[in-house]
Amino acid sequence: MMEELAHHILDIARNSVEAGATRLEITVEEDTQSGVLRFVVGDNGPGMPEHVRRRMLDPFFTTKSGKKVGLGLPLLQMAVQRCGGHLEVSSAPGQGTTVVATFPYYCWDRPPLGDIPRTVVGLLAGSDQVDLCYRHVYNGQVFELDTVEIRLRLRGIPLQTPEVLLWLRQHLAESINNLCGGGEDGQDRLARRAG
């Protein structure tokens, strides 16, 4: 069981990194009016061949050597089904993989979105070869951060430097809060999002 949707995002994105992706695009979309919460994890990895795609939701199937189970996608599938959401995975060799998980926004059984800044930082720590574009859409308003731009700004200082990653966490936390928490009912909204 994953306690936060952010844990699922980290897990799915780790699959991308382990499969050799160098570019990740993560989007979180919150639409409180139509009552939808959706996340998308897309990569430029090798993509899944047909025989893998067929069994990707089978918990006793994995592509990793020395293991007998592969629980990442099956756990996400369970979380989605528990609240009547929808999971879509598109992947083909040479075309990368995109995972789209859609949840009802207002649902007791939906795990809270959770700690996105920590997830992004956890994902980037030690993945020197990976660039990430994170996009957060809240009722049509967009925040976007691309590590390609951050790296340029760092002029050779590695993104993996602990101080830099901690700055990034702070920056993401403030930006997402500004995006989603503004207005009079800010506290209420924050509380809902935290679960």
């Binding site: 844990h7 897990d11 930082v121 720590a125 030690g126 602990p162």
Partner: peptide, 26 residues
Amino acid sequence: VVVTMGTCGIAAGAREVITAILEEIS
């Protein structure tokens, strides 16, 4: 310092561990 972050690790709290390590180093 390497933190294992498979599905099992993430579910058990690896994300919290890796950020704590970064914070302490910094």
